[in-house]
Write a protein that binds this DNA or RNA. Structure first.
Lengths: 347, 347
DNA sequence: CGGAAATTTGGAAGCGCTTCCAAATTTTGT
DNA sequence: ACAAAATTTGGAAGCGCTTCCAAATTTCCG
């Protein structure tokens, strides 16, 4: 059995030195056309493939980036959201010649960040993409920055966005538009099922929503707030509470589609007609919003784009050849828009 | 700046040779207790972490496994299914000290398998887990086997299961139970929304279903079959067709939950009451089946378990130290069960 | 207690690549 | 046409680890 060809095989086949082959393969600027052609021919003839392990060891990079999601042990992860972001990231990675390693970790079990930091310290990857609530974790961000390890944040809160490179929508404005939409439908009493407190960008959505109401002269008493955890179940439970009282809201605003679907489920259970008796809105425009009946009015977030953009920014940061230039540290805003479907109507 | 400690630093700190440290770190049997302790102390004192790149180059393994999903460019992937399998795989990987790289590829664009085979040839991973329809792709399986590259199949059809190591449920039996359930609910006219033809295990479900009917004296005319592609949209469209005729079925059996949700959506659109006018069943018991109204009767597949089991089998195959023992080639059956919810009722 | 067998340890040769530096070659300017 | 500058090429030193083999040590048993 003849082993796989190595760079030396290519070198001798092309009649050049190993270093020259390496230069050609790495698109180094200093190679003559003649030699490049000879080398490429040899590469082709031998069907040579670089050994990534060796390249990685020699160059000190892994050409792997990690994408970190949160999910605690018992609850299902927010799959559509994750999948969409992951898919975008995956596409960008294969475009850029990077591999993507996804990790789903329990934030509660990750308070010391050891597993995340291990990825960095272990050089098992060249960079990190963090999703909420990790993207709002100050201590983690600082630890990463101190190590000079490249990372990009997805849907981080305002504080974190100020500190580092991030991708996301204008959450406050999205919340505002939701409020405006419902106001225009003449609603005046609201329930808001928010995300967990440590999810800063979800909190911003609430803020924007309340701002919209304030603009219409409604104070915060118009809105009863319940804190969910982004799961369908928390949506059903919290909607049950919110809808129990005597003076019940005519519209329920939910911080993601899964919880909205849960609220819708409860509405069905209670025999309420959506949207005639109750309007419900979601957030994200994941497929869930079109699977339920009636389909949900929601905010469309370009999740795949967010995923791919995050990778692009990350790789740009990883790549910065000259130790001179600081890592790109920009807040990258992507567009969102409200999609009106059949779950909202005039009161 | 002091660079990261290497194995040599540990060796000199512990007063032993580099090879000895390596042995201790790799749990080689031939090390004395005294030395092991000294080495571990040095490792701890220096906060030493092995450099994976170097280990990989020297040992010729990557300690990475790849999980391959299918999704064509335009349609959303079957996210809950993917996520659940991926999560199970991920957990098993971190348990076993492996990294997981997920690839979502378009089977149509992958006819020559070049990207998958590249993973193997490039030694970017030590093994592969294939999901449908890749797990039913004969040519691919053969190419992998010929290379002696370790892989495990998920939910493969009977042919592929015979050839190689696989994990999945007894699809035929699951289909049978679905048929029995509906028969018991006195249904006699059925619509079956199947998966794409190249998805062999989904075809088995249909077979099992028809067998159940045959057992009750019903021939194949009792069932109108439509071929979907596992998406919500194909469910809505096909249900529209199936429900259009004069003698419409009283029960719709769908090869996964997403299509069942689509069928349910169409039923709503048509003003049909589920389950009073029409029973609908799903398959997989993904969260979708509980998100829709009414929740779906479905077959529960332990998807996380399937994912983790696949990894365990794969790693066992990768690991086989002695070139002697052939790769484990077993059909690993995991349990499933029918979950009755509110989408099915007596006719 | 002595020598053979079993076990533990160390030395050293790679794994296949990148990259630094110096040598060889080509290009440029006068 | 010639020296100087710019560019291309080759040589060689690692990157940090595993693993083979031989040397050193310990264990075993008659």
């Amino acid at each position: 059995m003849d082993r796989k060809p190595t760079i030396d095989d290519v070198a001798s086949a092309a009649g050049v030195a190993r270093a020259t082959v390496s230069r050609v393969l790495n698109a180094s600027p200093n190679t003559s056309e003649r030699v490049r052609e000879r080398v490429m021919k040899a590469v082709h003839d031998l069907n040579y493939q670089v050994n990534q392990q060796a390249r990685q060891l020699a160059s000190g990079t892994s050409r792997l980036v990690a994408l970190i999601f949160a999910a605690d042990a018992e609850t299902e992860p927010n799959s559509y959201y994750h999948s969409a972001v992951e898919l975008g990231a995956m596409r960008a990675c294969s475009e850029l010649g990077y591999g993507l390693v996804t990790h789903t970790l329990d934030p509660a079990a990750e308070k010391d960040h050891s597993r995340i930091l291990l990825l960095a310290d272990n050089s098992r990857c060249d960079g990190l993409v963090l999703t909420p609530p990790f993207s709002d974790d100050d201590a983690l961000i600082r630890a990463l920055q101190q190590r000079g390890f490249p990372f990009v944040l997805i849907s981080a809160g305002p504080d974190a966005r100020r500190l580092s490179c991030s991708v996301g929508i204008d959450d406050r404005q999205a919340g505002f538009e939701l409020g405006a939409h419902l106001l225009q439908k003449t609603h005046r009493r609201f329930g808001f099922i928010s995300g967990p407190r440590d999810h800063k960008s979800a909190a911003l959505r609430l803020q924007g929503f309340l701002d919209a109401l304030a603009g219409a002269g409604l104070n915060d008493d118009a809105t009863v707030i319940a804190e969910g955890n982004f799961t369908f179940k928390s949506g059903t439970d919290l909607a049950g509470q919110l809808l129990a009282g005597p003076d019940r809201p005519t519209a329920l605003v939910c911080a993601n589609d899964d919880m909205a679907a849960g609220a819708l489920f409860t509405a069905h259970r209670l025999g309420l007609n959506v949207p005639a008796d109750l309007s419900i809105t979601g957030f994200d425009d994941t497929p869930v919003s079109q699977i339920v009946w009636p389909p949900l009015t929601t905010i469309h977030q370009p999740l795949r784009l967010i995923g791919s953009k995050a990778i692009e920014l990350l790789v740009a940061n990883v790549m910065r050849e000259n130790g001179a230039s600081d890592p790109v540290c920009a807040e990258h805003l992507v567009p969102f828009h409200l999609i009106e479907r059949e779950s909202t109507a005039l009161r």
